[in-house]
Amino acid sequence: MTALIILAAGASSRLGFPKQTLLYKGKTLLELAIEAGIKSRCHEVMVVLGANADTIEPGIKQYNISILHNPDWANGMASSITTAMTEVMQNPAIRSVVIMLCDQPFVTRTLIDSLLFKQQQTGKHLIACTYSDTVGVPALFTHRLFEQLLQLQGQEGAKKLITDHPDQVATIPFEKGGIDIDTVADYEALIGNT
């Protein structure tokens, strides 16, 4: 069983307002991420909220997902991963997790399912996406890496495990994975390309 974890707790400080609520093709960025997860072969979708949760949560209440609150969101991405993994590890049926961000608008159900398929195909414990000369999220981690995800600190994200365990990593291509929304210019470029 695989759980999908969507990290959506950040304050969007470079943008100046919650990126989770930005509209793209009639949906918010967070809704697009949630819908890709719900349509995928993942059994459960978890969204970790933090900054601006009061603004964001009403817009996602209609989905059949777990909404987790990270009171330590200001301490960095690791705290959101810890929040989610603490929940995951209470369910021994969950044998792998996919971790993704809420601001990569081109993540699809097909991409998420490709991570699961690649893991079955290769037996590797970490399946990541390649894009823009890097390896990153969305990424799948099997239960063998759960404790290490729990031990991440501060600004460390899932990428630390990818770097630490190159022998355990298999990859899939994600052509538009480098497109994420951190600034107004990023958002304007996204809207301009539709």
Rank of each mutant, 00 (worst) to 15 (best):
T2C: 08
L4D: 00
L7K: 10
L7V: 06
A8L: 07
A9S: 11
G10M: 03
A11D: 13
A11E: 11
S12I: 00
S13K: 07
R14E: 10
L15T: 10
T21K: 13
L22D: 08
Y24N: 11
K25M: 10
K25C: 08
K25V: 09
T28F: 06
T28G: 09
T28S: 09
T28K: 06
L29K: 04
L30W: 06
E31M: 09
A33T: 06
I34R: 03
A36F: 09
K39D: 00
S40M: 08
R41I: 03
C42M: 04
C42H: 03
E44P: 01
M46Y: 03
A51T: 12
A53T: 14
D54S: 15
I56E: 03
I56V: 11
I60Y: 07
I60Q: 06
K61D: 08
K61A: 10
N64L: 10
L68S: 05
L68R: 05
H69Y: 15
N70R: 07
M77D: 10
M77A: 14
S79M: 08
S80D: 05
A84N: 02
A84V: 03
V88Y: 01
S96Q: 13
S96C: 15
S96R: 05
L101M: 14
C102R: 08
D103V: 02
Q104L: 09
P105V: 13
F106K: 10
I112G: 03
L115C: 04
K118P: 01
Q121S: 15
G123L: 06
I127P: 00
I127D: 00
I127F: 00
A128L: 06
S132A: 13
T134M: 13
G136C: 06
V137K: 00
P138T: 05
L140Y: 06
L140N: 03
L145T: 02
F146V: 02
Q148S: 08
Q151P: 05
L152W: 00
E156K: 08
A158Y: 05
A158M: 12
K160W: 07
I162P: 00
T163P: 09
H165L: 09
H165K: 11
D167E: 15
D167F: 08
V169D: 02
A170L: 08
T171V: 14
I172P: 01
P173F: 04
P173G: 12
P173C: 08
E175W: 14
K176G: 08
G177Q: 01
D180E: 13
D180G: 15
D180Y: 15
D182K: 12
T183S: 14
V184I: 15
A185V: 14
A185E: 15
A189H: 12
I191E: 10
G192D: 13
N193L: 15
N193S: 15
T194D: 14
